[in-house]
């Protein structure tokens, strides 16, 4: 749909000035709020059973970014979480590992030590998470420290204050600067996930604009929320963001991932999201490289559902870890 006037060539120009960026972002078509919510609700009623459910559960496990972002986190807790990430269900060797563990920057070293060699990535939040209220130098130092400790992925927060007051170029340049700070000495680069904090963006139109802004600035992933603000990830917001990544690929050929985070606690919620991914963005995104769930308690529910599928018995919280 949206970019009748935009070719990849035009997109290179949109960030030339604040005015051009504003013109572009406000030129994006508005989101039909009622339509988006109705479509999300309709897709949420799809019945996913038996073998499809088994596939969806395993895929969802592989997509989990197992997260602990509490002030009370300790090295011990991060080690326990990282061990769980590698072998989520020790009673079932067929259970796949999760995609990543997501921790605060100072605990990246601990997580990295534990998951080394397992293929599980370590993601670190950075840029004065969760508020993002610090000077650019502090944010960049935060990012560099995380990358230097071995983070494979960096989750940054955008400056919502700047975004909501319309200083789009400032947000754009900040993302670009963080992206540059993600570079490692060997020339490779940590993956950058841009947290939009959709719970603070007020409207779906803003979500669409913030998504495009983050993608134009070079983010590898757009992520809904920090998990510290309510509402966090909702299905209609995920739908709007998935439309944005789909349109962005059409316009530029570059694929960007989506990560809903916060508030997804049950396997049923996760499966609803997977249905929306498949229907809105397409099956290309049904892969841990392009779609993630930021969650902690979700994994236990997925494991209990897997056990039910495998044994026919409903499982209970006594049979999964407390974390």
């Amino acid at each position: 749909m949206p970019l009748a006037a935009s070719t990849p060539h035009d997109l290179a120009e949109v960030a030339a000035s604040d005015a051009a960026l504003r013109r572009f972002l406000h030129g994006l078509p508005g989101v039909d709020q009622v339509g988006a919510e109705a479509r999300a609700a309709m897709l949420g009623t799809r019945s996913i059973k038996t073998s499809s459910k088994a596939f969806a559960l395993d895929l969802a496990v592989r997509m989990v970014d197992l997260t602990t972002l509490e002030g009370q986190d300790t090295a011990g807790k991060v080690r326990a979480l990282a061990s769980k990430a590698m072998r989520p269900d020790p009673t079932d060797p067929a259970c796949p590992p999760v995609a990543a563990v997501c921790v605060y920057p100072d605990l990246v070293t601990v997580a990295k030590e534990t998951v080394r060699g397992s293929g599980v990535q370590v993601a670190s939040v950075a840029t004065a998470f969760p508020s993002g209220r610090a000077s650019l130098e502090v944010k960049l130092a935060d990012v560099r420290a995380a990358v230097a400790s071995g983070a494979d992925e960096v989750d940054m927060v955008i400056d919502r204050g700047a975004f909501l007051t319309g200083r789009y170029l400032q947000v754009f340049e900040e993302i670009e600067a963080v992206l540059a700070a993600c570079s490692r000495e060997d020339g490779s680069r940590a993956h950058l996930k841009v947290i939009l904090e959709t719970g603070e963006l007020q409207t779906y139109d803003s979500v669409r604009r913030a998504s495009w802004l983050a993608m134009l600035a070079g983010g590898d992933f757009i992520k809904t929320s920090t998990g510290k603000v309510s509402p966090a990830a909702t299905l209609p917001v995920a739908l709007v963001m998935l439309e944005a990544v789909r349109d962005f690929r059409e316009a530029t050929g570059r694929m960007v991932g989506v990560k809903p985070a916060g508030g997804i606690r049950t396997a049923k919620d996760a499966i609803k999201h997977l249905v929306v991914v498949n229907e809105v963005a397409g099956p290309d995104w049904l892969d841990p490289a392009w779609f993630r769930f930021g969650a902690s308690s979700l994994l236990n529910d997925l494991l209990m559902q897997r056990t039910k599928q495998r044994t026919g018995r409903y499982s209970g919280p006594d049979y999964v870890t407390l974390d």
Binding site: Y314, S315, G316, P317, D318
Partner: peptide
């Protein structure tokens, strides 16, 4: 049977 086999009962 669901109550009997449920591991959380």
């Amino acid at each position: 049977p669901t109550l009997a086999s449920h591991l959380d009962v």
